[in-house]
């Protein structure tokens, strides 16, 4: 079966609503990206140096990062030579194939590591990326699955952070365990674990203050928060989700590296994909650090969180190109 057919089948077996939502969210991303791709194909009928230069620009403008782009282009050049591809339209499937391959290495990578008893999920990341909002959305998601959820207000530093989580708690009907502003976040986590245990909660979602990864003291504090969780529940946290803002450029790589070192990140939530930013840096992160993207944020509402699907992500990026390729195939 061809790559496109496989991809298409996979997508149509997904519930329509999910696909639509995802596609809507990515429309803008796709429009600009694919628009450029189409331009590219129109302008360069043949696969030559100029074609690759333009492709390089397209990928770079998606924040994929220079190194990854160079590697990718080299591979594509090899591939084009090997398969004797001369026509620009024939290289398109190869491009999306490569991207999907890079993003998803096995099935079910985006599934969360859920426990029989309580699952503890710790959210980490730099300032303003969407940690607290993602926790609210995820609480809503778990609630809808019939699970009981507790949230821990571990950001005791930023003005209004506790109240922000409390509003989310009210919105989705979930209890928030908190202490006063300014108190020790590790102590909040300790409290939250006891409270969640005694309530027999299925899931405990732990918010933390945003911190830039070069602040050693703050990273140490985060390490301590994690340590306290592990001390209370030996294999917890069961997931450490690094929240990345899709608008972020190359610094996201540094974020992924440092937060991984400190907290052993198990997955990424890529937020704000409803804008025009493409979050291409996750390709580089996947390539270098092998951290899978597990969820994507597509808005500020409680329903705007979707499980990440590499095929859909790539499909979203290349939908028009796919269609075009299919039409061409039919004509043949």
């Amino acid at each position: 079966m061809s790559f496109f057919k496989k991809l298409k089948e996979k997508i149509t077996t997904q519930t329509d609503s999910v696909t639509t939502k995802f596609k809507d969210g990515l429309t803008k991303t796709r429009d600009s990206f694919v628009g450029q791709m189409n331009e590219l194909v129109k302008n360069y009928r043949s696969v030559d140096e100029e074609f690759f230069e333009e492709l390089e620009d397209i990928l770079i403008s998606a924040d994929v990062g220079v190194h990854t782009v160079m590697d990718l282009i080299d591979e594509l050049k090899d591939e084009a030579r090997r398969r004797n591809i001369k026509d620009a339209k024939d290289i398109q499937p190869v491009i999306s194939e490569k991207l999907a391959e890079m993003l998803q290495k096995s099935e079910n990578e985006s599934a969360l590591n859920m426990q029989e008893t309580m699952t503890v999920i710790l959210f980490v990341g730099v300032n303003g990326v969407g940690k607290t909002t993602t926790i609210g959305k995820m609480a809503h998601r778990f609630k809808q699955e019939g699970k009981s959820v507790v949230m821990a207000a571990g950001d005791t530093f930023r003005a209004g952070a506790i109240e922000q989580l409390e509003v989310w708690g009210e919105r989705v009907g979930v209890d928030v365990i908190k202490q006063q502003a300014g108190s020790d976040p590790a102590a909040v986590m300790f409290d939250a674990i006891q409270a969640a245990k005694s309530r027999k909660a299925d899931v405990l979602l732990c918010d933390t203050a945003g911190r830039l990864q070069n602040k050693v003291n703050l990273m140490n504090e985060l390490e301590k928060v994690k340590r306290v969780i592990s001390r209370e529940i030996p294999d917890a946290p069961h997931e450490v989700l690094l929240v990345l803002d899709a608008t972020t450029g190359q610094n996201a790589m540094s974020q992924a590296k440092t937060f991984s070192k400190t907290t052993d990140v198990s997955g990424i939530v890529l937020t704000k994909l409803d804008g025009t930013a493409k979050g291409g840096i996750v390709l580089a992160i996947r390539n270098e650090l092998d951290i899978p993207v597990k969820f994507v944020g597509l808005g500020e509402g409680m329903d705007d969180l979707q499980e990440f699907e590499a095929d859909q992500y790539v499909h979203g990026l290349f939908a028009d190109v796919l269609q075009e390729a299919e039409e061409l195939a039919e004509e043949d």
Binding site: I60, S61, A62, D63, V126, G128, D245, T247, T248, G249, Q250, N251, A252, G275, T276, A277, K278, I281
Partner: peptide, 12 residues
Amino acid sequence: VDAMTGQDAVNV
């Protein structure tokens, strides 16, 4: 503007 913004800074 967030100093960490990538390529999209131009569009924004």
